[in-house]
Design a protein around this nucleic acid. Structure first.
Lengths: 333, 333
DNA sequence: CTGAAAGCGCTTACAG
DNA sequence: CTGAAAGCGCTTACAG
């Protein structure tokens, strides 16, 4: 089962390897008969360009790394990551580039930076998550370009590629929706504050409340997971039993919060309105279905892939993109 | 930003490239002073073996493909796939091998087989899903070994690696649980019958009912998605309004079925018991939480990775593994 | 123990 | 338009 090389194809077609290479590369200035022979033999032999040889010769690796938090895979919060991944994979696929998963684990911090130095990848997309923040600085001086999904807190060098959604605007939308529903005692469950996303959502919420002359209700922190939402909600209820509105910075935390509210005898949305963030699966399967701030996750993944590929190929492109958030009205408000 | 080569390291250390290569490969029969110099210079220069050159020289590609249904990514049923993926990624990671996503789309059927012929991968793991069955035959004559998660229907050549769960046994467990709960008019929502998994679950269910002298209730078909579960449940109710038990071959379909039952005024489990299959996220977030047949999805992914790597490395290994299913009792029964 | 040399498969600048 | 040759960076069989 030895793979045929370009020499085999050239021999079978009765031409030099240079000619065979030209035909296979799509050159047009080749004798028609020769070209036909090369193409016929390549097909007959099942020839496929040896990938390692092409890369070594100076081509692109044809692969892009996708840095994700290992533990997110298959977990509750996996839906956020898979949506971005889907968009990124589609974009890379359309660009004939292979997505390589680079799960960030805590055991070997230098593993991913090292891999980026090996020439196996033309670039990487980093999906910023709580569990990854410790890697940001190590990735910042990568020899290949990196597209960040979400805005890193740390310094990531000059002219970075950053694809984000309008988290501040999303926080504003959430606050406004709660206010318009007549809520006046509004608390928040934030995400982990080492993530710019989480801080921006909180800031938008605070500012919008202030614009309406309302004092922000109690602020408690979660880490975007369902369990952290239940814990945070329990704390909120203790600190402000008269709460009538809650902005949870992720749908998972919103779902967790609703359970705690219901267990405490509060009806959603009759007694308390809840607004989530993300618009992932659980937003529509939760009971009641969540009113939430939608992030265009798949589009963000797609934009990261397209922008990174354009950069690698030296094409002009917008390096910083902030995609709009919007409110999706269901029944928790 | 030129990457240092082994020649740069050798020069800096004042030895030949052969000696440098030996040191870097971990050879012990090298002068201690030379070895120390090589290691020092390699670190100082930030040397990393050029991946393409090593592969071309005859080494392993150090990468394994993960063939998945593109549309599953980020969709409702993504949870099944992400759980397997997590296990596989962990296993590959532990083996110092990179997981490369190979999303199967319908536009270019030869894309993945072609890639497997390019030498870029040492093997592949195929997660069998409905959307992938058309690819099975094209993958069967891959030049690199393939590990199948789930048992393909088609012929896949001699001595294949197959990691599966005990679907038949799971069907038996589901039927038995429904019978022990006193149910006598029991219907089934099967998965897509081009998947062996779906057929085996149905067979286990049928056989167990027969063993108890019960005639199988109506059989309707879904495709594992939530929407197909609601549609199937509507048909079941039409055909057998007196149904008191349902085995849905996926948790998503079970969740969909429960909604339809509740909308039709049936209480779960008081009037109708429902048993699902998989034990993914929605099983515990559904209302009521699902009693379901658990597949050890992450373990299956891990076993696929371990078995494939052992095969590639020529180590002895069990090529066909059927992992046990078990029943997880919650509140839908 | 160490080094010079060959060769993996490809692409392209160069000569004709 | 075509072919002979060089070279990408690595590893290892061979000679010393």
């Amino acid at each position: 089962m030895v793979r045929p090389t370009i020499v085999d194809v050239a021999q079978a077609a009765g031409v030099s390897r240079a000619t065979a290479a030209r035909v296979l590369a799509g050159a047009t200035n080749v004798d028609t008969a020769m070209a036909a022979a090369v193409e016929r033999e390549a097909r007959r032999l099942g020839y496929e360009t040896n990938f390692a040889a092409r890369v070594l010769r100076g081509g692109r690796a044809g692969a892009i790394g996708l840095v994700i938090a290992f533990d997110e895979l298959g977990s509750l919060s996996g839906t956020f990551f898979t949506a971005v991944l889907k968009g990124a994979a589609k974009g890379l696929s359309a660009g004939e580039v292979q997505p390589v998963l680079l799960p960030a684990d805590h055991e070997d911090l230098d593993r991913i930076p090292r891999f980026l130095r090996s020439g196996a990848l033309d670039g990487a997309i980093v999906i910023l998550q709580h569990e990854i923040t410790h890697l940001v600085e190590r990735l910042a001086d990568s020899p290949v370009p990196i597209a960040w999904v979400g805005r890193p807190h740390a310094d990531i060098g000059p002219d970075p590629i950053v694809i984000d959604s309008d988290n501040y605007g999303g926080g504003v939308l959430a606050a406004r929706a709660l206010i318009e529903a007549g809520r006046r005692s509004i608390g928040i469950i934030t995400g982990p504050l080492d993530l710019e996303q989480a801080r921006e959502r909180t800031r938008g919420w605070t500012d919008e409340l202030a614009r309406h002359g309302l004092t922000p209700g109690p602020i408690v922190h979660g880490d975007f997971t369902l369990d952290s939402g239940t814990a945070a909600m329990a704390r909120l209820l203790q600190r402000a039993p008269d709460l009538d509105g809650i902005f949870a910075s992720s749908d998972l935390m919103a779902a967790g919060a609703i359970r705690v509210l219901q267990a405490a005898g509060r009806r959603v949305p009759t007694d308390v309105s809840v607004v989530g963030f993300d618009d992932v699966l659980i937003a529509s399967t939760s009971d009641p279905p969540l009113t939430t701030v939608r992030q265009p996750l798949e589009e963000m993944g797609r934009a990261a892939a397209d922008t990174l590929l354009a950069t690698i190929r030296g094409l002009p492109t917008e390096k910083v993109q902030v995609l709009p958030t919007s409110i999706v009205r269901r029944e928790s408000l």
